[in-house]
Amino acid sequence: MPSGPKAIVSVTGGKGGTGKSFVATNLAVLLSERISNGLVLADLDVEAPNDHILLGVGDPLNVIEIEIFFPKIDYKKCTSCGACVKACDTGAIIMAQGRPPFVFPRLCSGCMACYYVCPEKAIARDGKRVLGYIRTYRVERNGKSFMLVSGTIREGEEHTPPAIVATKRHAMNMSRGLLLVDTGAGTGNGISAAIQYSDLVIAVTEPTPLGLHDLESILKIVSGMGYRSWVVINRHGIGPEEEHVELAKQYGVERIYRIPYSPIVPRAYSRGMPIVEYAPDDPASKALEELARDLAVELEGKLGVAGVVGA
């Protein structure tokens, strides 16, 4: 693990729309008040990052490009042998007999297999293309601030994992205290990359059959990777959750939190404000505060005594 953050907590959940970003942004606001040596929130939902909207922040401090390898072929050296076409797992390279290969940029994942198999060394090692962007924001809250690092892929791009890895690396380099990771939906390679190195994974679900189904998918990944996990049942009260609890037990989930369903939450959303600021006395805010408090206590050892204040 690269040096950088002292602790990494990831918020994920499998299903889209369970409230991953909702939990992550509210936790970030609550924890930034408690953690003195720095908090970085990484939005790794690179297909649709929106933590900056939920937090109501303005323009980013800076924007950098995410570059990945792209085969630049030296047509003087190329003998049209077709080795690169055979090696390409994503079908990004095509070749007509006797003619030089042709690369589809959007299909290329930048894996470099073509570079390694080319017997003529006709593919340059330093070929690059822009896959997406990393935006860094400063989020100011009550005199305290934390950094938000947000990754985005360009429209039409098919490969999210390289962008997720690049954004996460950037956030880790920036972090000296707690790194809070917000992942996208799903359970693919990109999600595994997003939750890698976590000290704790928070899986957000909801009391619906779909929430149950996707909770199992994500808990399989998390337990398979050997990470500790907590579960948050968001929109608590809208349906039965016995099976969710049973499932959590089965996968060794340490704690279960419940955020009651609250009609105030979408109102806070529509104003670009975290619920804990818009309506601090709402039952949903109280539940998030309890989670943040417990998280701060849990991380005290990792972050050092000075790292956590008011826990």
Binding site: V85, C88, D89, T90, G91, A92, I94, M95, A96, Q97, F104, L107, S109, E158
Partner: peptide, 15 residues
């Protein structure tokens, strides 16, 4: 194919 199915199919026809 995991991805690039159309291109792989076309390549097979070209071959």
């Amino acid at each position: 194919a995991g991805s690039g199915a159309g291109v792989k199919a076309a390549q097979a026809l070209g071959d």
